[in-house]
Design a protein around this nucleic acid. Structure first.
Lengths: 237, 237
DNA sequence: CGCTTAATTGAACATACTCAAAATTTGTGG
DNA sequence: CCACAAATTTTGAGTATGTTCAATTAAGCG
């Protein structure tokens, strides 16, 4: 079992992830935000919060990647979005005093800060740029969610899986070799993004291999022909 | 052709729809918002703005109902949400200076105010309660969009159509008789909400009739057995 | 009325799912 | 570092759900 790596967590004012939403806050505000902050370690696979449970504040990812997913009636997962360093989690439910509407799971070992609800609210009230930033985040998420709805509703599986690979590339990029997707997912998880079953995902990926678009090496996916994938996803025009 | 009904449009400060997002603004702010406001009439079926076009401000519905929809690759529509009196349209694209990501169409004769972008921004900057209100709106929309994604991705058509009827009831209520849905849609539009074809929608609705859940009279839909519909939609627990 | 749009029905078909079983990989403890 | 257990990947065959296409009837509108 991997040991917890001790990491020095700075005040939000000195956080390297400050190129995020928090850049709109002056340092003294950030210090206030940090007062009751705590930082927690989550091992890969661990759950940060569960759909249905009640929030006590919001999370900010210091290090690592997180998946946000919802559970359907039959226990099948739908991955709604990913979040990475500097991004916020759970603030929506916290603001509206509702239970979490999705589950957040660490995709890799993570350090995640927790900021109590009242500190977050204070920041929202005292700084309109911060509010605007949150509005922008929400707008972006909403835009993507609605586009996703359209895709899952109307595009065939093949196109959705191709687009999923392209999104993984856009979002997380390649490894050093410049072609292997740096985000490693199980076939099931890829299906849970695209809204299909594991079996269909496997068959479709192996089609892509036959067509020369990608190469598979276990969970590692190399993109061999990006344009072909883009065409497969019907993303030209 | 129906005549345009002349209607006196008050300043936002005196708008009867003031139980909306604008209640967080003091009257003098509302007056400022109204300065360059104009009010437009849209006949049923007319488009308020098109997906892909560029916004110059945001809309607030004074009277009437509007559908927000996106167009898929094959020209099939996906209805994303409805908006009614006092609700805002197009502010997201306006804020982020992007093109509209969806099309807004009048579902009935509408009066809709247009407020220039800069007035809206000013209100956001000067009043944190207003920002918070917008954040709440966005959060609610995002929550619904993600739930929708899960539904369309995982629930069978039958359940989705049942849920669509229930949502229409929740959102727009009944006519005076206490059982006829007051929102009248074509079969195609119902399908465009549930993410299915017109034919499947027709067949499913006629199943519901056979089962005694609803009664159909042209486009009018009466809900005869609400609990049965709820069960059909798998919405208990 | 005549024309356009919407609703309905039927039959054939396709996409993607389900279920089952085997092969492979991964994780873990000894 | 090996061996076992668990999880994941893969393949096949059968099938269901929902789509497509075509044709007909009904409704709405000028």
């Amino acid at each position: 079992m991997m040991k917890r790596q001790p990491v020095d967590i700075p005040s939000c004012a000195n956080c390297e992830n400050n190129n995020s939403i928090f850049c709109s806050l002056p340092n003294d505000e950030l210090d206030k935000l940090s007062v009751n902050k705590d930082n927690n370690f989550f091992k890969k696979g661990q759950v940060i919060f569960y759909e249905g449970n009640h929030p006590h504040g919001m999370y900010c990812i210091y290090q690592g990647k997180v998946k946000i997913s919802k559970l359907g009636d039959e226990g099948k997962e739908q991955i709604v979005r990913f979040a990475g360093e500097g991004e916020l989690l759970g603030y929506r439910s916290s603001l509206s005093n509702e239970s979490y509407k999705a589950t957040a799971t660490a995709m890799e070992d993570c350090y995640i800060c927790h900021i109590p609800k009242d500190k977050f609210s204070e920041a929202l009230n005292s700084n309109s740029n911060f509010s605007l930033g949150i509005i922008r985040l929400l707008s972006e998420d909403l835009k993507k969610a609605e586009q996703n709805l359209l895709n899952i509703s109307q595009k065939p599986v093949r196109e959705r899986i191709a687009e999923t690979l392209l999104n993984l590339k856009k979002r997380f990029g390649y490894e050093e070799d410049g072609k292997t997707l740096s985000m490693t997912l199980t076939r099931r998880e890829i299906g849970d993004i695209a809204g299909t079953t594991t079996e269909t995902t496997i068959r479709t990926l192996s089609d892509f291999v036959k067509e020369g678009s990608i190469h598979l090496d276990g969970k590692k996916i190399q993109i061999l022909d990006l344009n072909k994938l883009i065409r497969t996803a019907s993303l030209f025009e």
